[in-house]
Design a protein around this nucleic acid. Structure first.
Lengths: 215, 215
DNA sequence: GGTGTTAAATTAACGACGTTAACTAATATA
DNA sequence: TATATTAGTTAACGTCGTTAATTTAACACC
């Protein structure tokens, strides 16, 4: 039997250890393959205890993802200091891809697993807040570049541009995570795939593509 | 109690109706949300009967996917008759995307789920066979276009180009499948996202991008 | 020190799941 | 007609997410 909790601080500590155990197991074996009982056993509690901290499995999963989203957005924030707008977009893509490839299992939970629409009652992330939401950061830079007239004149929607850039990087990363180990595809080096995706997309989107050559 | 089966033909008919019921339910509500009992009830059989035709749920799912992917590759095969190489690449991408968006749950299993990829022990698809494998078809067209000198001179690896095109389309589709219902992203129309991805990538890759404008 | 009160944790249970064993009834074959 | 095979069933096992009922420990107060 685990020790009783006394202070509010201890309660928070237990909550954090549940999150840690859940994240590890989810990342190791996938969401459906991990039971609430298993998570509880990992920290020497009974399964019911988890329900005193999270409404259900879905809420626990959402909390795990929230933490990862914040971690990702934090890393991106430094990139935003770069002066050149195109360089900023490139660095955002590179940083995003590095996060995805270095934390493939978290990335899978965050961006490759369909879930019930994000319920504002259970997520604590403030979507749209650039300090907590990596996509909001990309949107911001792309809008700045759009207003600076850096994109081709026929492109009239900066949100569409941001979503396309995101999709391109995500496509390379998620294919690598999902099928990178498959023997029947002769995968080219992942760095080369990322680089070609970046440069091809920028060449296709920028008004003066020359600026995209130096990566 | 359903009628007894007499001939081998009837047996095959039952197998097909199991596949149909499973496909419908999987596509409607997702794989994990559908039980074997439910599939069986839909065709007025007991759950056990399914196990006389498929080893387990995984095998049933794989059989459903096999059928659909053969259908995909078949549809692609007609596209290969188009005379213009660039138009062929564009049509391949469009067909691939339509398949992904119309069968999101099957697409998710084949291309978005690591560790449960196309298992050669249970799949009957022959990877690399252009009649059964859509990626092999893309590779073929891209190599033809490469040898025809359609790509930028600095691009020296046709497999890298094929993988990048695949990643771009896959990125749009898989983001839509995984996060398309998320309210916190103001998604632009999926058709527009696909079109920009196609045209931007082609503009970035082709030697004479003008050919990519007419979609 | 005893006595409630309350919060934290537990055990036990429910209904649904995938799957399997044991069984039944109908057909085919001899 | 007797027997073997086959297609289908029911019943059961162990696990799952989740909840109700219950126990246990720490604290406040007399």
């Amino acid at each position: 039997m685990p020790p009783r909790i006394k202070s509010e601080q201890d309660r928070e500590k237990l909550r954090a250890s549940i999150l840690d155990a859940a994240r590890t197991l989810f990342a190791e074996r996938g969401i459906d393959a991990v039971s609430m009982r298993e998570i509880a056993k990992k920290i020497n509690y009974s399964a019911t205890t988890l329900y005193h901290h999270f409404a259900d499995k879905e809420a626990l999963l959402q909390a795990v993802c929230d933490e990862d989203f914040l971690k990702l957005a934090n890393g991106m924030h430094q990139v935003m200091l770069l002066p050149d707008l195109v360089a900023r977009i490139q660095a955002l893509g590179k940083g995003y891809a590095m996060f995805a490839l270095q934390h493939p299992n978290h990335y899978r939970l965050m961006f490759m697993t369909p879930r019930a629409p994000c319920n504002p009652d259970i997520t604590r992330i403030q979507q749209g807040n650039t300090e907590q939401d990596a996509y909001a950061q990309l949107k911001l830079v792309v809008r700045d570049a759009f207003e600076a007239g850096l994109f081709r004149p026929e492109l009239s929607d900066s949100e569409l541009i941001a979503q396309t850039i995101w999709a391109g990087i995500h496509g390379v990363c998620s294919l690598q995570i999902a099928l990178g180990q498959e023997g029947w595809i002769q995968w080219v080096d992942i760095e080369a795939r990322l680089q070609l995706m970046q440069s091809a997309m920028l060449q296709g989107i920028l008004r003066h593509p020359a600026t995209a050559n130096n990566i």
